[in-house]
């Protein structure tokens, strides 16, 4: 209304309860320009996260001295192939196989680009460090940095290394509200052909979700318990005290974000 200095917002009391794009107003029947552009910016961030590549050198530089890494590539040569052929993203290319040598590791850590380079860049180093700090009594393999990789690539890596468990830190599919969310998949006795039901997942590691330390805490609980009981997946998850972020306050997107 023209006579109101601050426009009255009938949705005011709802905005803290949801980050859904409610009460946007109308230009005729369409979106007002600023909301149109806000949507396009969010989509652009998500698209860039999917199509971007991880700065692996920068990521490695962010790890403490003494933490070894080994770079591998999936059988998907590029992003376009990766998106069309999930089967190739789950396998190692021939040359990479030679870089992984069999030894009696307790845990293999794989950092995989997945569907969000931004997530890996932002959260993978800190999360890996938090995990290593909590597992000093375990024999952990050099961190495997995997390009064009999906979760199940970890099965091949774990088997090749002879690791009893593999944890894959991977960029999750970006949404409009969060483009840089990291997930972790933990698998006991990794070998090609593992089913998803044999894995435990910790999702939503990002600025408004789990912190790297919180995620590492959950992962290490699952890893120690899984190692003791010689399994991961559905059988383990049911007894985990709290692996979801349900109940966490969900921040609202500012009206003009």
């Amino acid at each position: 209304m023209a006579d109101e200095a601050i426009p009255f917002d009938p949705f005011a009391r709802f905005r803290l309860a949801t980050r859904a794009r409610i009460g946007l107003g109308r230009s005729g029947d369409a979106l007002p320009s600023r909301h149109l552009l806000s949507f396009q910016l969010a989509h652009a961030l998500a698209r860039d996260a999917v199509n971007g590549s991880v700065d692996w050198d920068g990521l490695t530089a962010g790890l403490p001295d003494g933490v070894e890494t080994v770079a591998v590539h999936s059988a998907a040569p590029d992003r376009q192939t990766y998106l069309r052929r999930p089967d190739l993203g789950r396998r190692l290319e021939a040359e990479s196989l030679g870089r992984l040598s069999h030894a009696g590791w307790d845990l293999a850590l794989v950092v995989a680009d997945g569907l969000s380079a931004a997530a890996v860049q932002a959260w993978a180093p800190a999360t890996a460090i938090e995990i290593l700090t909590r597992l000093k009594d375990w024999k952990v393999a050099p961190i495997v940095l995997a390009r064009q990789a999906r979760v199940a690539l970890g099965d091949h890596v774990g088997e090749r290394l002879g690791a009893r468990m593999v944890a894959v830190l991977i960029g999750e599919r970006p949404g409009l509200s969060v483009a840089d969310s990291l997930g972790i998949y933990l698998t006991y006795a990794p070998r090609p052909g593992c089913r998803d039901a044999e894995r435990n997942c910790i999702s939503n590691i990002h600025a408004d979700g789990l912190s790297p330390a919180q995620a590492a805490e959950k992962l290490v609980w699952l890893a120690r318990e899984g190692m003791r009981r010689k399994l991961t997946g559905v059988g383990l998850k049911e007894e985990t005290p709290s692996t979801s972020i349900a109940g966490k306050e969900v921040p609202a997107i500012p009206n003009d974000a």
Partner: peptide, 25 residues
């Protein structure tokens, strides 16, 4: 249709309320 075409639970984009109204008119 979802608010502003952005499904904040399933993390994908559908049509927005505006879109269906536009199409009807």
């Amino acid at each position: 249709a979802v608010p502003g075409a952005d499904d904040v639970m399933l993390n994908y984009q559908s049509l927005g309320y505006h879109d269906v109204l536009t199409l009807r008119h």
